[in-house]
């Protein structure tokens, strides 16, 4: 009994450490990558050595800022919204496998649980947008809800394709069943999953709910200081979650060129950061979609492709 409790505590602590470090690393990566791509000087100087202290400086800045709650806001909901936005991602970190046996909690239907929890994240955004008592916030929240409800569909359908191929809903089980040729077989699903994942975490070019040139800053307009930083952290945690899910479902998770069992965690991390880099790269490379284009892409491109992929998966599965 004692050993089980200690092991459980260790696993939860591991997930917590991952939750506290990986998003910050992705944040630093974003600063550096964007600075190089756009020729920005700020993130090159802070701290002297290649701008290593940029994120620390950001943190200090956020802590110093005044906490402002608008007078007309629904104060309780306004204060709770960042936590409601962040908590789902924290739970997802418990379920993502890092290596063989290296997982916070291996569930029989881990994939389903992850999708269900990620879907709940929208509530935090709706809370923030409505309780701010600001029309730009509300518009941002409504855009976000419409976007998330739409993109949930291709997100789940493309994940279902992999689950069908692997014959299991368990995330470690999917990695076990994965073979290199699935890269080709599941390629359309991978693209659909990645794109709708970007939309799920509201990253550019799908940042219509924030759209700083139209809606001030969307549902984050009224947030300052640490609460804003928490939303930012949720965004980076979202990048890690989407990258890790893409890695586990489509890129073979801990399977690498050699020594899967000893170095599995390293292959996973390398893949997660490679996908995160693509997420950041896409932000720099593409302009924001217009609201109607956003919905068209979802319903007329992603959903049909995901459905076609399901048919393809089923056919190959039956023939083999």
């Amino acid at each position: 009994m004692g050993r089980i409790v200690i092991e459980l505590l260790l696993r939860v602590a591991g997930a917590l450490v991952a939750f506290l470090t990986l998003p910050l690393l992705v944040g630093q990566l974003e600063h550096k990558a964007m600075a190089h791509m756009q020729g920005r000087l700020g993130p090159m100087y802070a701290g002297g050595f290649h701008g290593w202290a940029q994120l620390v400086a950001d943190g200090v800045k956020f802590v110093q800022k005044e906490e402002i709650v608008p007078a007309a806001a629904d104060k309780t909901v306004f204060r709770l919204a960042p936590a409601a936005g962040l908590l789902p991602y924290l739970l997802v970190f418990l379920l993502l496998p890092l290596g063989p046996g290296l997982v916070g909690q291996a569930l029989d239907m881990g994939l389903f649980v992850v999708l269900a929890i990620v879907g709940v994240g929208v509530v935090g955004m709706l809370m923030a947008s409505w309780s701010s008592a600001n029309k730009y916030s509300l518009l941002g929240g409504l855009r976000g809800a419409a976007q998330l409800l739409g993109y949930e569909l291709p997100f789940v359908l493309s994940a279902a394709s992999v689950a069908m191929a692997a014959g299991t809903l368990s995330l470690p089980g999917i990695v076990e069943a994965w073979r290199p040729w699935w890269l080709l077989w599941q390629a359309p699903a991978a693209v659909v999953f990645f794109v709708s994942g970007l939309a799920e975490i509201r990253r550019p070019p799908f940042d219509m709910p924030i759209a700083d040139s139209e809606l001030v800053f969307g549902y984050l307009t009224e947030y300052t200081g640490l609460r804003f930083a928490l939303f930012l952290l949720a965004e980076y945690a979202g990048i890690v979650v989407v990258s890790a899910l893409t890695t586990v479902l489509f890129l073979g998770g801990w399977k690498g060129p050699f020594a899967d069992h000893q170095l599995g965690w390293l292959w996973t991390l390398v893949k997660v950061f490679a996908v995160s880099f693509v997420v950041i790269w896409v932000r720099v490379a593409y302009p924001r979609l217009r609201e109607d284009q956003l919905q068209r892409v979802c319903w007329l491109v992603l959903v049909p492709v995901a459905l076609a992929q399901l048919v393809l998966t089923a056919v190959v599965k039956v023939v083999l």
Binding site: A116, L126, E152
Partner: peptide, 25 residues
């Protein structure tokens, strides 16, 4: 288990969100 997570995915993640969306609209 399955019923619990379906409840989360469908009711919390979709039905209530749609309800809130409609009320806010």
């Amino acid at each position: 288990e399955l019923v619990a997570w379906v409840q989360m995915l469908i009711y919390v993640g979709a039905v209530v969100v749609l309800l809130l969306f409609a009320v806010m609209l």
